[in-house]
């Protein structure tokens, strides 16, 4: 059954997008990650204009993170003070990101920019995960456990000005690092159509030393509001949010995530990470390939202004 997407201006099979939502939802349920970094490239592969893929994906992330954020809130796992600072930075980053998308589209370089950003990000993350999971699998086989690195009590983060007390996280640190982190993640959300949890979570744990139990809730809180703001900004500035497409991806995504979570409980952590690393690297290679191989048709047309 075909459906016409009003903003992407293309006709495609209804089941294709629900299926894509379900597959990525399955993976994100299984691995416990947001699916933005897989969904945006997949949408681009199916022929959705890259700017529409990025704008619409922001809306889907709102749906997939809101329930998680609410669950964490009920368990009181959100540091609202830290979250608000991350969010303030995130909105600033998102405003800049949306303007950057606008300027790059006008210059005809947005496709290139998105693909290069994804190749870099997926390449780095995929490689790191691959190395880490191979090491973990080897250790599990040999039975040797390498002691995790002792964390220092103080690092450079603690020498910055504007110190604040974060009661929920039991921290007394400068407000600058979470603010900068928020700006960076908000910028990524706007230009790449990702939530940014894969950067925010490690940064909060290792850099800010936020207790693990508050990290997930606080980052989900930030992601929900930043992607919501990003959706509105993309809709206003670029008209690149396709509500029909978003709804199809959401429907597929919520169903897929339920089954993914069940499947994830039956697989071992390091094997899961190895599998995810493989998928991430494949997507990166496929994107890089599209830039290197002769495109066949050197010309392209972009409509300007609508009636």
């Amino acid at each position: 059954m075909n459906i016409y997407l009003p903003i992407a201006e293309m006709s495609a099979n209804l089941l294709l997008f629900i299926g894509m939502g379900a597959s990525v939802g399955f993976l994100s349920g299984m691995f416990g990650v947001g699916g933005g970094f897989l969904m945006t490239p997949l949408l681009i592969f199916t022929g959705v204009p890259s700017a529409v893929a990025v704008g619409t994906e922001a809306a889907q992330i709102v749906a997939s993170s809101v329930s998680g954020a609410l669950a964490q809130w009920r368990r009181r796992n959100i540091d609202f003070k830290m979250g608000t600072i991350l969010l303030a930075g995130g909105i600033v980053g998102s405003v800049f990101g949306v303007e950057a998308v606008k300027a790059l589209r006008r210059a005809g370089q947005f496709d290139l920019f998105v693909i290069l950003s994804y190749v870099t990000m997926l390449g780095v993350i995929g490689t790191l995960m691959m190395i880490e999971s191979i090491n973990a699998i080897r250790q599990a086989k040999s039975g040797v456990v390498i002691a995790s690195r002792q964390r220092g009590q103080h690092n450079w983060v603690h020498r910055l000005p504007l110190k604040m007390r974060f009661h929920r996280s039991k921290l007394y640190i400068s407000a600058l690092p979470p603010l900068v982190l928020g700006v960076f993640v908000g910028f990524l959300a706007a230009i790449m159509g990702v939530g940014g949890g894969f950067i925010m979570v490690p940064a909060m744990i290792y850099l800010l030393k936020v207790p693990t139990n508050v990290v997930v809730g606080t980052s989900l809180f930030q992601i929900t509001f930043v992607t919501a703001a990003t959706t509105v900004l993309h809709a206003t500035q670029n008209q690149t949010v396709d509500a029909t497409l978003a709804l199809l991806l959401i429907v597929g995504g919520v169903i897929g995530a339920q089954f993914g979570a069940i499947a994830g409980q039956r697989l071992r952590g390091e094997q899961l990470r190895f599998l995810l690393a493989g998928i991430v690297l494949l997507v990166a290679l496929r994107l890089a390939w599209s830039l290197v191989v002769h495109p066949g048709e050197l010309f392209s047309l972009t409509p300007l202004g609508r009636p």
């Binding site: 809101v66 809709a235 206003t236 978003a246 919520v254």
Partner: peptide, 19 residues
Amino acid sequence: FFYGVFTVLIAVGAGMLAS
């Protein structure tokens, strides 16, 4: 602007309903 807000509300509603 309102279209953006509308899309967000739909997403929030769908996410909450699913959970």
